[in-house]
Design a binder for these strands. Sequence first.
RNA 1: GCCGAGGUGGCGGAACGGUAGACGCACAGGACUUAAAAUCCUGAGACCCAUUUGGGUCGUGGGGGUUCGACUCCCUUCCUCGGCACCA
Length: 802
Amino acid sequence: MALGNKLQSSTVERKWQEKWEKEKIYSPISASPEHPYYNLMMFPYPSAEGLHVGNMYAFTGADVYGRFIRMQGNDVFEPIGLDGFGIHSENYAIKIGKHPTKLAKTTQARFYAQLHSTGNAYDWSKTLETYDPGYYRWTQWIFTRLFKQGLAYRAEAPVNWCPSCKTVLADEQVIAGKCERCASEVSKKKLAQWFFRLASGQRPDGTAYPESLLANLEKIDWSPKVRIAQTNWIGRSEGMEIRFKIEDSNLTIPVFTTRPDTLHGATFLVLSPDSDWVEEFTNEENQESISEYIKTSHKTRFSKAKSRAKTGIFTGKYVLNPLTGKAIPIWVADYVVAGYGSGAIMGVPAHDERDRDFAVKFKIPIVEMQPDESLWVEIEEKGWGERHINYHLRDWLISRQRYWGPPIPMIYCEHCAQDGKGEQKEMPGWYSVPEDKLPVELPFVENYRPTGTGISPLATDPDFYKTPCPGCGQEAKRETDVSDTFLDSAWYYLRYPSVGTSAAAWDPEVTKTWLPVNMYIGGAEHSVLHLLYSRWLAMVFKDMGLIGFEEPFTRFYAHGLLIKEGAKMSKSKGNIVVPDAYIAKFGADTLRTYLMFLGPFDAGGDFRDTGIEGMRRFIDRIWSLYSQKGKKGTVPEEVKKEIVVKMHQTIKKVSEDIAALRYNTAISAIMEFVNLLREDRAQAASAERDAALRTLILLLAPFTPHLAEEIWVNGLGEKFSVHNAAWPEFDRELVKEEEVTIVVQVNGKLRGQLKLKAGESKTQAEIENMARNDTKISSWIVKDSIKKVVYVPGKLINFVTG
RNA sequence: GCCGAGGUGGCGGAACGGUAGACGCACAGGACUUAAAAUCCUGAGACCCAUUUGGGUCGUGGGGGUUCGACUCCCUUCCUCGGCACCA
């Protein structure tokens, strides 16, 4: 067989994509693998523009790694799917006026076609989409399990409200006071919502979930910056909870502080406007002004936090400082947040900058003092309070007043509620939908747009919400909110290997073989959203005996972000670059290699297409190495030797670099190798050249899978497939250069070089003499002025003169 | 404000404390061609001297320091990008 003169990328690429899928070489699940390796990349949410080069950048990087691991003898499972449920998809549907159900169909087809064209080693028999009832049935099942476990609860609370998306948001989805999706200003609204006990939950052994989430970070191999981001987000603080007795009352207000040693300087107490305590101090006199204050504070909740001037209102009541016995005023102010600690603080203006600002503004006394370490003990001994650990992490607000998501599988029965009956004692009237009644299918609702009133569009559909009570059989009402899209993605990795199983969310045997995920590659922007939710849910599953591990991703690698003209690619900025045209013109192999060559994979970069032609030229030059007959004649021995050395050096360098995801330098090493093989002196046929050409294809296979396969099978006549071939090994002896260069320095400056044969062993004295005898070098050394000679064997000699 | 990453030719970027600028893009000159494209070959951090071959000085955001030797380590400062942000 022979290769054509010119590489026809589109034909060749499509041919092999079809062949790979037909031969199922990337479908290892049912093949009882010896070395299972789960190589996962974060699944995309399908926007209607399609996959952009930023997605492709991330996926290619993950695929290169997977292909490398595969060639090292692992059975690599590399799945892909679509995170198509949720606000982002729905907002786009609204914008273009197409129903999300219909839009999902077209974007799915487009995405999968594009993903095929990139040539990744996906297992196309294990795709999943979060909006598929066969998938979200199990998302709902998870919800019901959490409810039964007491980890899902409904409560009325002030929550983040996005006026544009017309829904509530979890804390993690509010970025600098703005909606993570649409960038609108977020305000606070008091609504009854479902929460997961991400922060307040306890493990069977009594450990708080945040504690385990924090402790486990030490055990997993994750990009440090993501671990740090999670640590900060979980935000552990050690301190004390101190009780302040209300004057003329038996009630005490608990306050969390990390500085109990400054208790003697506490001259006031501040309640968050959202604290339940506020009601306690509201009377006819101050009612109007307090509720007015709360209202305005909700509106300005997030705006420019630090620079904001302090505001507040005095309740007219006092508490007693347990240490000084003095009555100190109780204020309400929005610089205290409700969800942290007890929603109340002691104001120590002499010590805390914020408290000082507040005290100055409202003319509250400032008592200067020195912190007193002994108070830690005294407070506990006197029974004023005790040691306490607080977390920044909050419970996960799961409800969304939207259409495009899995309906929350809960039913509320008024009759049972009145009788105090229900599935959970604490929540009378509430029942989870029985497992055999799942999924609660999302009905087709013509007017799916958010209502803006705090209730979901599903609440307008009686056919949907009217249902018999699972407890008493009388008419009851379904929950009409849907769940957060981050719940969909918090467990998808568990489903992939079990796609096709309808009896369970995941097959226990398959799960045992394939999980946890060996390598997870994705964007660092998910540090505190997806990655934290996934970890928590896995921990919960472990505690419920549903899986055998508690950390879902053994290794996580954060890739860099590919941007365009300094900005993240986004529809609103209109800077989305779609790979299709590049793939059509240059081939997927060229684009893949180009993207991986841009710079370090963890650094990302600015996408420019200058230079992509150059990468295509490189691909063509490789092609011509195999399509053209070698030159006649013989190759000198030293050139043969040079080829062998370079080959082994390249294997070493490329292997090490890919293992560390340093793709740009791996590619440059391959380029150097190609450059040598293209030199005239190396052209003539020889066994060494043949070995080099074969090795080159193996090294290229992860980057240019189609080109490598075509040359492997049709150029070299090897057995299909190169992607099942073994990764080449290097010989430690043959990596060594023939000739060693010793750098000669005088006072640290380069003054000359000495060339030595590799095997030659020289003493320092001999090297020194050689250097002195070199006229060029000796001119720099003034006689008898040498104070010191530094010699690094095989590397360098440095003469230090006085 | 706090945390994290980073500042190297015209550009993307390489460099276990040991020859700074690998590899590539863009560029320039040459070969091939009637011509162009494609391809191939050659050159190249800046500056200075010799200008044929060479040789030297400076140079990794700025300023200090450690070291025989610093892009690399330490201190300090400026700038850029990302994350968190009144969390007590």
